[in-house]
Design a binder for these strands. Structure first.
Length: 103
DNA sequence: GGAATGACTCTTT
DNA sequence: TAAAGAGCCATTC
């Protein structure tokens, strides 16, 4: 098994989230082989280039909410993309019971 | 090596 | 349901 950077493993995990579903930061950490690394996952996604085609918008926090500031551009983009995929987003809330990805 | 950092999470109030 | 506290991890300085 070749050693891949933490960054790359997180990217790979995020890329597997299917359209119309969401995963939590902690969940992505687990899938990337980095348990309890939610904060790390969030920090890594923040550093993504704007032109990245990674489905970062499908990652939300364990409370079922978008973790970006409500008034930020990032928040608007994430919410819009999720809605485009058919999810119901009320304010910054999303139903994990209904949309959380179960790998 | 030690301290600070962040798109987090779990438990307890 | 919301708020506060402590815990966690890799990266950066």
């Amino acid at each position: 098994m070749g050693n891949r950077s933490v960054e790359l493993r997180i990217y790979t995990a995020v890329a597997t989230i299917p359209s119309g579903r969401v995963a939590t930061y902690g969940q992505i950490g687990m899938l990337a082989g980095l348990p309890r690394s939610g904060r790390l996952v969030g920090r890594t996604l923040k550093n993504l280039p704007n032109d990245s085609n990674l489905p970062w918008h499908r990652v939300i926090n364990a409370s079922g909410r978008i973790s970006l500031p409500l008034d930020s551009e990032g928040f608007k983009r994430q919410k819009a993309r999720l809605q485009e995929e058919g999810l119901i987003v009320k304010g910054n809330r999303i139903s994990l019971a209904q949309y959380q990805w179960q790998p």
